[in-house]
């Protein structure tokens, strides 16, 4: 299963970006192949609709779970429609730590 994690940087040591639509990077992690890929968020600076555009992005990667600090009201119903589970992490965790938790 593919998981999208919002990240402030593009390494395992980077911390979770608390914003979803305007995060710096998306870390795409495949729990089966254990592959991790960082993609710079192209929607960081759009005027409007960063949230839905980011949902489109992760959906096109076939993601089924999204991990972030917060999900805005504009996107919750979109995520539900696409059956993408939202996981909110409030603590400051690194991508490496979140990947570890996903493997448990």
């Amino acid at each position: 299963m593919k998981v999208a994690i919002t990240s402030k940087g593009n390494t395992l040591e980077s911390v979770l970006d608390s914003r979803f639509g305007r995060c710096s990077y998306f870390a795409f992690y495949d729990t089966e192949s254990k592959k991790l890929e960082f993609v710079k968020n192209p929607n960081l600076n759009v005027n409007e609709g960063a949230g839905p555009l980011s949902v489109k992005l992760i959906a096109s990667y076939g993601v089924k779970k999204a991990v972030s600090g917060e999900f805005g009201f504009k996107i919750k119903s979109l995520m539900d429609d696409l059956s993408i589970q939202m996981i909110v992490v409030n603590e400051e965790k690194t991508i490496g730590e979140i990947v570890e938790l996903l493997n448990k």
């Binding site: 489109k56 959906a59 979109l78």
Partner: peptide, 20 residues
């Protein structure tokens, strides 16, 4: 211009985001 059309061709999803 306002990203008001939510469009995911891979999943055959298209809809209007009226607030945008």
């Amino acid at each position: 211009e306002y990203n008001a059309i939510f469009y995911v061709p891979e999943l055959k999803q298209i809809k209007l985001l009226p607030n945008l």
